[in-house]
Structures are given as structure tokens and as C-alpha cells.
């Protein structure tokens, strides 16, 4: 797939948070086969310098980074965080999150569209974390977004695709815009489901990081995403209500 002129070999984008250890994070990224990982910015102590070791680890993996604006609740916070991320990570890519509600962590669509416009005009390539609302998606595309990242379910919930109908509509409505299901994926079957619907990629974090064996789960997701994509490209059969024999009926024994 291609986003903002960059070709990606993997359709699985992986978050880097909540792993049991840096070594397991590194192994999970390799097992997932991801060439894009999400990262963030947090307050740094001049004494502890916790972020420096993490940044060295990520750079050693040879993957592209997609910084996020997680935790931002206003346009101003999101724009400033994006600008800081661009300087630190050296990329115009930004996963734009403007959170509207503490409990559901759902995007504030009004602030999201406004921030997306400001950042696009400032030269950013915006990956908006959005809902499955078609009109919000249209406004994001008008604001300059060349990729859309609707949620499957609330962040960290692992519920899968809460509104399959809406996600199908979105795929049909934006046939030429890369669509990434971001958030809510809990199982490889959820990821395969989204890929079978024709989604271009999956972005997930918790489902791998919080698995008992994150590295094995990363591998499972890699297979699921690949299988789902192959299935979509293979043009699945139409489901039907009645049974239809798959074994030829002609020549069946014991029938007169």
C-alpha cells in the first residue's frame, strides 16, 4: 500500500506502548513484520532521561515512525505536540488524535477537522484517528488528509469492529482513500474481518502488547492481516440462506 507517496510493505502498523520489556517490544515488531510503528512524546526528566533509551531502540529497528498526539484534548495542544514531534522524530507524518471524552477516548470530530487543516497547511502529512462518521471523514479529506483511520471500537477495548455496517459504508464511500482501522482490535480474527471488508491496513497496540505472549500474538496478527487482504483480493463468494451441495450430485450412489 502507499500513503503520502510512501510505499509500505506491511499492512500492520504497530504501537510501541505497554510491552513487558523493550526486548519484547523489539521482537514483537520483527514478528509483526511491521515497517511503521507509532510513538509519542512525554515529559522528560533531565536526570532520568527515560525517553533516550527508547528512541535508540526504535532507531535500531529500522522502521518508520508515526508519532501521535495522544492525550491532546484541544486543537492548540494537538498542533503544538505535532510540531514538537516533527522536530524530534524528523518526519512530517502525524497520527492526529484530539480526544473528546475521557471515558470513551473518542475523537472530538470538530477539533480534529480544524487541527487537520492547520497541520496540512503547515506541511504535515496527517493520519487522523477518527470515528466511522462519513461526513467527518469527508471534511478530513477536504482538509487535506490522504488517509483515514476510523476506530473499530474504543482504544484499548479489544472489542473488534463495533459497527461493521458503518465501516463497510466508509469503504464504499472512499474507494480511493487508504483506510486503516485504528483502535479496538482485540483478536487476529477482528483484523482479518476488517481486511476482508477491504480496509488497507490495521493499526493496533494493546492486543499485542497485553497478550500473554506478545511476540507470538504479533506473528498471529501478521498472518491474519495477510490472510484478510488475500481474501479480499480473491473476491469472496456471496453468502446465501439455503444449503447448496458442494459435492456433485450427479452419479450419487444408491439413488434411483
Amino acid at each position: 500500500m502507499e500513503v503520502y507517496g510512501t510505499k509500505l510493505t506491511s499492512r500492520l502498523l504497530l504501537g510501541t506502548s505497554q510491552y513487558p520489556s523493550p526486548a519484547i517490544l523489539a521482537d514483537a515488531v520483527k514478528a509483526a513484520g511491521s515497517d511503521v510503528v507509532t510513538v509519542s512524546l512525554r515529559r522528560e526528566s533531565g536526570v532520568e532521561r527515560a525517553g533516550q533509551g527508547f528512541w535508540s531502540l526504535i532507531r535500531s529497528l529500522g522502521v518508520k515512525v508515526l508519532p501521535n498526539t495522544a492525550g491532546c484534548h484541544t486543537v492548540k495542544e494537538a498542533v503544538a505536540t505535532a510540531q514538537m514531534a516533527r522536530e524530534v522524530f524528523g518526519t512530517p507524518w502525524i497520527k492526529l488524535e484530539v480526544i473528546g471524552n475521557h471515558d470513551t477516548l473518542q475523537p472530538d470530530p470538530f477539533a480534529l477537522v480544524e487541527a487537520a487543516g492547520i497541520l496540512t497547511r503547515d506541511g504535515f502529512q496527517v493520519f487522523p484517528y477518527t470515528t466511522d462518521d462519513l461526513i467527518v471523514a469527508e471534511k478530513l479529506v477536504e482538509a487535506g488528509c490522504q488517509v483515514l483511520m476510523p476506530w473499530g471500537a474504543p482504544i484499548g477495548s479489544g472489542k473488534g469492529l463495533n459497527n461493521r455496517f458503518a465501516l463497510r459504508s466508509m469503504r464504499a464511500h472512499f474507494p480511493d482513500v487508504p483506510l486503516v482501522v485504528d483502535a479496538g482490535i482485540g483478536l487476529p480474527s477482528h483484523a482479518a474481518d476488517a481486511m476482508e471488508l477491504g480496509y488497507d491496513a490495521i493499526l493496533l497496540n494493546t492486543a499485542v502488547a497485553k497478550a500473554g505472549d506478545p511476540v507470538r500474538m504479533a506473528e498471529a496478527f501478521r498472518h491474519a492481516v495477510e490472510a484478510g487482504r488475500l481474501a479480499f483480493e480473491a473476491d469472496p463468494m456471496e453468502p446465501r440462506d439455503m444449503a447448496a451441495p458442494s459435492t456433485p450430485v450427479l452419479g450419487t450412489a444408491f439413488r434411483s
Partner: peptide
């Protein structure tokens, strides 16, 4: 609340009550 790039740090004068954010790379989803 406003981003201050590396190139402007030396010329950015501080005043009493200023609020400074210093952020570093961190794990994210």
C-alpha cells in the same frame, strides 16, 4: 503552549511564571 524549535531556544527569553514543556520520545499507540 507554543512550540519553540531548537533554533529559537537561545533567543527565547524567560519571564517569571512562564510554563515550559520539555518532551522526549516515548512509547505510544
Amino acid at each position: 503552549g507554543d512550540f519553540t524549535p531548537v533554533a529559537r531556544r537561545a533567543e527565547t527569553e524567560l519571564k517569571d511564571g512562564d510554563q515550559i514543556e520539555v518532551l522526549a520520545p516515548m512509547q505510544g499507540g
